[in-house]
Design a protein around this nucleic acid. Structure first.
Length: 505
RNA sequence: GGCGGCGUAGCCAAGUGGCCAAGGCAGAGGUCUGCAAAACCUUUAUUCCCGGGUUCGAGUCCCGGCGCCGCCUCCA
C-alpha cells in the first residue's frame, strides 16, 4: 500500500499519485514577516518539513517552495510604528524566522521566494484575468469577480449565497459584489508601490502565492499546504485566480495543518495567548538541541490535522520521553563495550532476535507515515522498539547488534528530525543556570534544585571516585553524603552492577 | 445564522466494521540494588459523550441530542 494523503478538496484520504512519478512539487504558505513567529508557525513549518523529508526518504525528488509575504498592511503598519521602512521590517522578521527554523531543525525550502520579487509575474497574471473577463478595474484597484468563477467555494465547502448571508466584511461600494477580492491595490501616499498598467500600487495578498507557485512549479502541481485558517479565503481565492487565468487545475492535493492551542483555544495574536518560538528557547532550562528535539517530539506526537494543546506539562512529557530513548542509546552503547567496561560485548541471545525487530520497525514506520503522515503512529513504533531493545539488552546483545539498532533509530528518526544527537550530547545539552523566578512566561519544570554554579566534569569524576572508594569500604554513609552533594548540583548518579557509576546532569 | 471538525482510561494520544480497543505519561505492586537510579515484569477503558438505527458484527457507517473548537475579517 502506498502513501495516502487527506485532501482538503475532497475531505478524504486519497492515494497519492504525483503528476510525474518519482517527483513531487509542493508549495507551502509561509509567513507574513511583520513580527516574531510563534509556536503555531513552528508547527506548520515542522509539519511540512516532515512531509517533505518523508517523501525524500521514500526516494521521491521534492521541489519544495515556501514563500515570504513581504508587502502587506500589517508590515506597513509595523514600519510606521517602528519608524523604519517596510522593507526593513520584512527583512528583519524574515531573518528572525530563518533563525528560528534553524534552531528547530526545519530544513530550508529549495526556493524561498519573496513576494516583492515577483511583481511582474503578478501583473501578468492580473492582466490575463482582466483579458478573460474575470476581473475589473476601479480607480487603480483591480478586483476579482467571484461570480464569474463558478467553482468558487469548492475548497472551503461554501456556496456564494451562504457567504453573502454571513458576510461580515465592510463593503467597499466600488466592488460589483461584496465578495470580490483585491488583486491589486492602488498606492496610498507613503506606501511602497510598483508601477502597473493601472497606476502605482501593490499586489493583493492572494495573487502572490498564485504567481510564485506557478512560476516555480508550473500548473498544476502536486501539493499545496498551509494552516487550516488559510483555507478560506486565501486558498479559495488562489484556486479561483489561478484556474480562471490558466484554465487548468491549479493543485492536486491540498494539505492543511491544525492549530496549536492553549487551553483548547487557538493560539493567536488577537487572543494574546501565544508563545514565540524564541521565547520558548530562551525560557527553556535546556540547550538548543534538547529544546528543539523536545519541541519537535511534542508537536509530532499529535497528528498534523488535529489540534495540539501546548502546556509546560506537555513539553515536559516530551522531554521525558526523549530521555528514555537516549537512555536506551546509552545502554546500547555500553552493551557494545564502546563506553565503560565491556559487560555484554560478546554475542548474546538477543542478537538472533534483533533483525526481525528492526524489520518490523521499518514496516511499522512506513505504514504509519503512509497513512496520511501519521507521526504519532511512527513514534509509537519507536516506543515499541525501545521496550523490545531494552529487553534484548538484558538478555545480552553484541556490540555489532547494538550499533545496528542505534543506526536504525538514526535513519528512521531522521525523517522526524529525532534521535540525531549522541546520548552524550543529549545529556550535556541540558544546561542548568540560575534563572530569575519572575517574569517567566514559559516555565519548564526541572526536577533538581538549581544552584549557582555547575561542577566541571573533572570535579564530578573525582567525587564519583571518592564515592566508589567509600562504597568498597562499605562506608555507605559517606557514599550517600557524596550522592547528596552532587544532587545539590543537579547531578544524578546511577550505579552499574560492576561497582562503577555513571552520572547525568 | 451558515459551513466544517472534534468528544477514546487520571492525563496525552492512535485506532482502514470483525483476533484480548496501539503507544506514552502519571499511579500501584514486584525483580534487581547496601540504599537508589535506570531497566525489566505485572497492573490501569466488559468499553469508546448520550439516545436511537443499519449490520451476523460499530469506537469505526446513518439519524437525533449534548458539549467543546475552528472558519465565515488579518491569521500557520
Amino acid at each position: 500500500m502506498g502513501l495516502r494523503i487527506h485532501n482538503t478538496l475532497t475531505r478524504q484520504k486519497e492515494p497519492f499519485e504525483p503528476l510525474t512519478p518519482g517527483e513531487v512539487r509542493m508549495y507551502v504558505c509561509g509567513i507574513t514577516a511583520y513580527d516574531l513567529s510563534h509556536l503555531g508557525h513552528a508547527r506548520s513549518a515542522l509539519v511540512f518539513d516532515v512531509i517533505r523529508r518523508y517523501l525524500e526518504f521514500t526516494g521521491t525528488r521534492v521541489r519544495f517552495v515556501r514563500n515570504f509575504t513581504d508587502v502587506d498592511d500589517k508590515i506597513i503598519k509595523r514600519a510606521e510604528k517602528d519608524g523604519v521602512s517596510p522593507a526593513e521590517v520584512s527583512e528583519r522578521y524574515i531573518a528572525e524566522y530563518q533563525n528560528d527554523m534553524k534552531r528547530l531543525g526545519v530544513l530550508p525550502a529549495n526556493v524561498e521566494p519573496k513576494a516583492t520579487a515577483y511583481i511582474p509575474q503578478m501583473i501578468a497574471l492580473i492582466e490575463r484575468l482582466l483579458a478573460r473577463g474575470f476581473a475589473y478595474v476601479v480607480d487603480g484597484d483591480v478586483f476579482f469577480e467571484v461570480r464569474r468563477f463558478e467553482r468558487y467555494g469548492c475548497l472551503s465547502g461554501k456556496n456564494l449565497d451562504e457567504l453573502l448571508a454571513g458576510a461580515r466584511v465592510e463593503v467597499d461600494e466600488r466592488k460589483r459584489d461584496p465578495r470580490d477580492f483585491a488583486l491589486w491595490k492602488s498606492a496610498k501616499p507613503g506606501e511602497p508601490s510598483w508601477d502597473s498598467p493601472w497606476g502605482p500600487g501593490r499586489p493583493g495578498w492572494h495573487i502572490e502565492c498564485s504567481a510564485m507557485s506557478m512560476e516555480h512549479l508550473g500548473s498544476p502541481f502536486d501539493i499545496h499546504g498551509g494552516g487550516e485558517d488559510l483555507i478560506f479565503p486565501h486558498h479559495e481565492c488562489e484556486i479561483a485566480q489561478s484556474e480562471a487565468a490558466t484554465d487548468t487545475p491549479f493543485v492536486r492535493y491540498w494539505v492543511h495543518n491544525g492549530f496549536v492551542q492553549i487551553n483548547k483555544e487557538k493560539m493567536s495574536k488577537s487572543l494574546g495567548n501565544f508563545f514565540t518560538i524564541r521565547e520558548i528557547f530562551e525560557k527553556s532550562p535546556y540547550g538548543v538541541p534538547v529544546t528543539a528535539e523536545a519541541l519537535r517530539y511534542f508537536l509530532l506526537a499529535t497528528h498534523y490535522r488535529s489540534p495540539v494543546d501546548f502546556s509546560d506539562d506537555a513539553l515536559w512529557e516530551a522531554k521525558r520521553a526523549l530521555d528514555r530513548f537516549y537512555g536506551l542509546f546509552q545502554r546500547l552503547d555500553e552493551s557494545s563495550g564502546a563506553a565503560g567496561p565491556p559487560q555484554r560485548g560478546a554475542a548474546g541471545p538477543g542478537d538472533r532476535l534483533l533483525p526481525p525487530l528492526l524489520e518490523r520497525l521499518g514496516e511499522g514506520f512506513r505504514q504509519a507515515m503512509d497513512d496520511d503522515f501519521s507521526t504519532p503512529g511512527a513514534i509509537a513504533q519507536f516506543q515499541l522498539l525501545r521496550g523490545e531493545l531494552n529487553r534484548l539488552i538484558d538478555a545480552g546483545l553484541s556490540r555489532r547488534s547494538g550499533e545496528q539498532a542505534r543506526e536504525q533509530f538514526r535513519s528512521f528518526g531522521q525523517v522526524l528530525g529525532l534521535f540525531q544527537s549522541s546520548w552524550r550530547e543529549w545529556e550535556f545539552g541540558i544546561v542548568h543556570q540560575v534563572r530569575a523566578a519572575e517574569a517567566v512566561a514559559v516555565t519548564v519544570k526541572v526536577d533538581v534544585t538549581v544552584t549557582k554554579n555547575s561542577l566541571t566534569d573533572e570535579e564530578i569524576e573525582q567525587k564519583l571516585a571518592e564515592r566508589n572508594e567509600a562504597r568498597r569500604r562499605k562506608d555507605f554513609a559517606r557514599a550517600d553524603e557524596i550522592r547528596a552533594e552532587l544532587a545539590a548540583f543537579g547531578i544524578t548518579i546511577e550505579d552499574r552492577p560492576d561497582g562503577t557509576s555513571r552520572w547525568k546532569r
